Amino acid sequence: MNQVLLIDDDAELVGMFTEYLEQEGFRVGCAYDGETGAREATSGRYAIVVLDVMMPRLNGIETLRRIRACSHVPVLMLTGRGDDADRILGLELGADDYVTKPCTPRELTARVRAILRRTNAPRDEGGAITLAVGKLTMLPEQRRATWDGKLLELTSTEFNLLEILARNAGRTVSKNELSEQGLGRPLARFDRNIDVHLSSLRHKLGTLSDGRSCLQTVYRQGYQLIRE
């Protein structure tokens, strides 16, 4: 499934991105306002959504809220340079990653590929693998995770990051490792993407028997999923 939905009120920009994505083998759908975009994004026809933050009437943040209310489709946000507040809010609401405008079609396409590569990564052929760490159970082939038997509602990127931590349970994983393996790109300077995703994960995961979060920050080193 390689269909991309572009949601942006800038018709010229959408046209340029569409042309490049199609040359790279993607099928592209377009929406020029948030309401239409939210309906299309939750239709089940798209592998990924590229969503602009700055749109009239229903902006990108509110559009993302509507999408996340009923869909876990990967969402790549387009944000203005310096829009840190919108960028962080978008990540907190469940965006998978962001690209800062202006950006080139090549950069956008590379970021789309990186997200889809992790989301659709081929699994081992030796049968279904189950990752179990304490009360956490993950089924990577099914993209499914539970805590104490209850299903966790995770975005694509949250699942990727949690899987990396589960495979390295008990060991500190650096933010750069998490970015490269979970997002498909090196960690940029001052990039808070990983921190925001891990904060969201911490709220979704349960606690250990002593009340601590099972997901711990290791100062200046990274994050660790604790075995219990």
Score class of each variant (00 low, 15 high):
95 A>P: 04
95 A>E: 01
98 Y>S: 02
99 V>W: 02
101 K>N: 07
101 K>F: 07
101 K>P: 00
102 P>V: 01
102 P>S: 07
104 T>S: 15
107 E>P: 03
107 E>M: 10
111 R>Y: 02
112 V>Q: 03
112 V>E: 06
114 A>S: 15
116 L>A: 00
119 T>R: 14
120 N>D: 13
122 P>C: 12
122 P>R: 03
123 R>M: 15
123 R>D: 12
124 D>K: 12
126 G>C: 08
127 G>D: 11
132 A>D: 13
134 G>I: 10
137 T>A: 08
139 L>R: 11
140 P>I: 04
141 E>P: 04
141 E>N: 12
141 E>V: 08
145 A>V: 08
146 T>H: 08
147 W>E: 04
147 W>K: 04
148 D>E: 09
149 G>T: 01
150 K>T: 10
151 L>M: 04
151 L>D: 07
151 L>E: 11
157 T>R: 00
157 T>H: 07
160 N>C: 06
160 N>R: 08
162 L>D: 09
164 I>P: 12
165 L>F: 05
166 A>T: 12
168 N>H: 15
168 N>Q: 12
169 A>G: 10
169 A>N: 10
172 T>K: 01
172 T>F: 06
172 T>L: 09
175 K>N: 15
175 K>W: 07
177 E>C: 06
179 S>H: 02
179 S>W: 02
179 S>Q: 06
179 S>M: 03
180 E>T: 14
180 E>W: 01
181 Q>I: 11
183 L>D: 08
185 R>T: 05
186 P>Y: 06
186 P>R: 05
192 R>W: 05
193 N>G: 12
193 N>S: 14
194 I>W: 12
196 V>F: 08
197 H>N: 10
198 L>T: 08
198 L>C: 12
198 L>V: 09
201 L>T: 11
202 R>E: 15
202 R>G: 11
204 K>N: 10
206 G>R: 05
208 L>H: 05
208 L>Q: 06
209 S>P: 01
210 D>C: 04
212 R>F: 00
212 R>T: 06
